[in-house]
Simulated scan of single mutants.
Amino acid sequence: MKTPKLPPEVPFPPAPWQLAGECWIGLFQADQDVPCPAPWQHVFSPRLTVVALMRYIEGTLQYDELMVGPLVRHGTRMGLWVVHIWVDSAASLWGGRRIWSLPKELATFTWEEGRVRVLDARGGPIAMLGVERRTGFGPALPMPVPGIGGASGQWTTFVGRMRGRLARGGLSVEGWSDRFPFQLGGTALVSVHADRMSLTVPPPESWAEEGASPSATASP
């Protein structure tokens, strides 16, 4: 895929970010292995990938977000390696790139009854996702949300703190762009919907492999 054209840089809030809204998270099987950079290794099958759809309607910023990537590990570190991530906010894009070294791109999210259509900044299709709003049961549960960003031997790791009422199911992939090297489709192997969700994303820990210099700044 071509390197995306990014919008002009804009100011963004410092970490931590306090966000609230709802989310859908599912585990899908791709038609081929999902990329995982050395020295990270897949926790599960290389074809298993997480799809997370977030709607942040309160807090530090308000925006929609779609992220895709496998669960990976290296030594004692483990988290979601973010292969692709799209947002509809320039402040979120630049904050994600500069603070957490996440490869955020701009997209538009069109919400319809039971689904959401995601198009990139050039108007090209990314995904059509089926979503069901299922009411969670019981009290809001705390959940760690570990993430990994960076490249070229220089990494950022962070653990978000989420709380939400969980309901089983609710996410499917009804369409996926053939521009990507792996394809996703169908109902998730397992998925959850969290309503009344809150998430705190702290500043990252930056570290480097032997022979590389630590860096706390994301590449543009």
Rank of each mutant, 00 (worst) to 15 (best):
K104N: 06
P46F: 01
F28G: 00
P8R: 13
C23Y: 12
E210A: 15
S101H: 13
A90W: 01
V159L: 02
T135N: 00
T110V: 11
L93C: 09
S89N: 12
P214I: 04
E112W: 01
R97A: 06
I85T: 12
R55Y: 02
F12R: 08
D178M: 08
V173S: 06
M197C: 13
S45W: 04
G123Q: 08
V159W: 04
D88R: 05
A216N: 14
E209C: 13
V201C: 08
Q62E: 15
R55C: 01
P142T: 11
G186Q: 00
R168G: 04
P70T: 08
V10R: 09
R168I: 12
G21L: 06
S219H: 14
S177F: 03
M128S: 14
L61G: 10
V201I: 15
D33V: 08
G26W: 09
M78L: 13
E132D: 12
W86C: 01
M78W: 05
S45Y: 00
G138E: 10
S177W: 04
D120H: 02
Q41W: 02
L6P: 13
V190N: 07
T200Q: 14
V82P: 01
P204A: 07
K104V: 10
M67C: 10
L6Q: 07
S198N: 12
C23D: 13
R196Y: 07
V116P: 10
H42I: 02
Q32L: 00
P35C: 04
L48C: 07
T110A: 13
Q29H: 02
W176R: 05
G96M: 11
P203G: 14
R122V: 01
A188P: 01
G79W: 06
P146S: 10
L189N: 06
M54I: 14
T187N: 10
R55D: 01
S198G: 03
V87E: 01
A127I: 03
G149H: 10
G169W: 04
H74V: 06
A140D: 01
G169T: 09
H84G: 07
P11W: 09
T135Y: 00
G175D: 12
V192Y: 11
L102Y: 09
L166D: 04
V34A: 10
I126Q: 03
R115W: 05
E113C: 05
R196W: 09
T3F: 10
R115H: 13
E65T: 01
M67R: 09
G75H: 09
F158I: 05
E132S: 08
Q32K: 13
E22P: 11
P142A: 09
E22R: 14
E9Y: 06
A20E: 12
G153L: 01
M54D: 15
R47N: 00
T200I: 13
G69Q: 04
P202V: 05
H84W: 11
R122I: 05
I148R: 11
I99R: 07
